[in-house]
Design a protein around this nucleic acid. Structure first.
Lengths: 340, 340
DNA sequence: ATGGTTGATGAAACTAGTTACATCTGTCAA
DNA sequence: TTGACAGATGTAACTAGTTTCATCAACCAT
């Protein structure tokens, strides 16, 4: 009597006793109900309900070696693009009966390695990371633990981990091509810190070795609305004014847009502004932002599926390339033909 | 020999064997190192390192009854305000050696109850939720499990759970007062869905029973930039035009701002626009948004501290009121004195 | 009637830790 | 010299599940 009432949580033995069966039978009701006689199963289920019993995930984990949770390491939650990705990851992982533990890295490989270690220590079965630049300790950790890790926001079939993402260089090139098609030959390129961000690096690289005769100038600012404003001010102070501003991220484009408005520069009449990401809000900015759509939600879901498949079947999933599409809205227009 | 190499992860017994001590001693090295002789401790630590051993969190959880993780239930990750709160929660929880599992509820109490159940099933020691409206199953769950739960984004010292948040009604009133002080008597109030969002309800209630003679009209739209745009269009179609638009959330204010610009309405000359939240980007919008600052980062940290204290000491933490402050920027100005 | 097979169940040994209690050694005071 | 006690360590019993293997009854074919 006192067991059920005064004592804390019921355990498997309590349920077995209440149902008048052995612990093995209770365990079977959970894991292989078809092997248990109908009547017995009923009895056990009643006992479970009346004791409000839920199996201890920890005890299960100890036996099966499966904790059923994975970790996600993202640079920040402050950029909507990662928040979006995590949201879709979480819901997709739930369908695989997997939980998600989130850790932020601030784009610092050392912190990433540290947090990854923390996630492994608490039993993460797999990790989802962003990009391809990681600390040596990170690599040694995943090698030592034989840990399933998939990398997002980047596609590279030759990378040592499966990558689920898009071709950043191509996406940037698509954006630039749109501007050059419109006749813009002098273009300011605004981007976030590149030193520790391989996605940014790839986007820049995509522009540098492919632009057909365009005159590009680069502006590196913090990856935020404020950074975009700063870039806007910097661009307007340049000696040779570009006719278009290509932002390698939509948050930067938003900031640029706001700053240009503040300075009385009309978009797209005086300057075209191009983004890259296609955040949910970008379609509603003034003017509506032309950008390159990156399928982050689909990417989150795909990464979730990939890591789930890996931890479930032990088979390394294939890399997955998601296409990025040009979306032309109101912030870009043909260059004024004054020839600079 | 084959143990270390071919077999998977080392366990406590392996370490004990390698160090030539008993399992109890290894356990002591971890949990009460001062009771172990210096030389013995060294030996054990060497064995740990050479076997790359990390204790199994699951096994530890089973014994101590502590899983060291808490769950956070947020409506969405798409609003920067929750992303921000989670980021600060996560880092603060880490200082308490607690991990955070995130689940989104889409503002649906049923889904919240369901996800809460899921979190409890996987061993969450405590929960952090938003607001005070929850499903009956949610309450019965936390009662049955005696689960520590703190509620954020809301302050109410009489609520059955400790609340860590601000006074939403007062914050809304502060925003409105700023507008009335500027001479705006006809104000459009734009807000997100109120049916299942008690913060929104409280903000609206704060306006309704306190406005000194102002003429308020309410516009309910989806809580997003797009929703803000929609509201902007609706307001402009109203017969009696308001001189100011009070948005009960900064994301809505952003949308309103964009839409007004699109329609050629100048802010703050023709209409003042007021927000509520003070998101990181709001200070950089065009025009810079006047708003009421809500200390979400501090709130996240405070909630993390509260839940940590609760699970650690079993003592229910006190409710915590965080102040909200008016921040006047460029989107509000004195009403044109044409008397409408 | 007997042996073989299947289906349902239980006993006990696992998983990886913690911890209560026992044991052993060495020091110090009586 | 002996008893008391502290300090260091080990033994074994816990935690809450899963799983292997054994058992036993029922049914069917011989």
């Amino acid at each position: 009597m006192q067991r059920n009432t005064s004592r804390k949580r019921a355990n498997l033995r309590d349920v077995a006793a209440a149902a008048g069966v052995s612990v093995a039978t209770v365990s079977r009701v959970m894991n292989a109900p078809e092997t248990v006689a109908e009547a017995t199963r009923k009895k056990v289920e009643e006992a479970m309900n009346s004791l409000h019993w839920v199996p201890s995930a920890a005890a299960r984990a100890i036996n099966t070696g499966r904790t059923r949770f994975v970790g996600a390491l993202v640079p920040t939650l402050d950029n909507a693009i990662f928040a979006r990705m995590l949201a879709s990851m979480e819901s997709r992982l739930a369908t695989h009966r997997l939980s998600l533990v989130v850790a932020t890295t601030d784009n610092d490989p050392a912190r990433e390695a540290e947090k990854a270690k923390g996630l492994v220590d608490i039993g993460a079965e797999g990790l989802i990371v962003s990009g391809v630049t990681h600390a040596p300790e990170f690599y040694s950790l995943i090698e030592r633990c034989q840990l399933p890790v998939v990398s997002t926001s980047f596609y590279d079939p030759h990378y040592q981990l499966p990558t689920i993402g898009y071709d950043n260089a191509a996406a940037a090139r698509t954006a630039l091509a749109h501007l050059t098609d419109l006749g813009h030959s002098r273009v300011a390129v605004v981007h976030g810190p590149s030193a520790s961000n391989d996605r940014t690096q790839a986007r820049i690289a995509g522009l540098e070795n492919h632009s057909p005769k365009s005159d590009l100038s680069f502006y590196e600012v913090p990856l935020s609305i404020a950074g975009g404003c700063e870039a806007g001010r910097n661009v307007l102070q340049a000696e040779k004014q570009p006719t278009a501003i290509l932002c390698l991220s939509d948050v930067l484009a938003s900031g640029v847009l706001f700053e240009l408005q503040r300075q009385g520069v009309s978009v797209p009449q005086e300057k075209s502004v191009m983004g890259l990401d296609d955040l949910a809000g970008s379609a509603h900015l003034f003017p509506e932002l032309s950008t390159v759509h990156l399928p982050v939600s689909r990417m989150g879901a795909a990464a979730a599926d990939a890591i789930a498949a890996w931890v479930e079947t032990q088979k390394v999933p294939a890399a997955c390339l998601l296409r990025s599409d040009l979306v032309i809205r109101a912030s870009t227009a043909a260059a004024a033909s004054d020839g600079g």
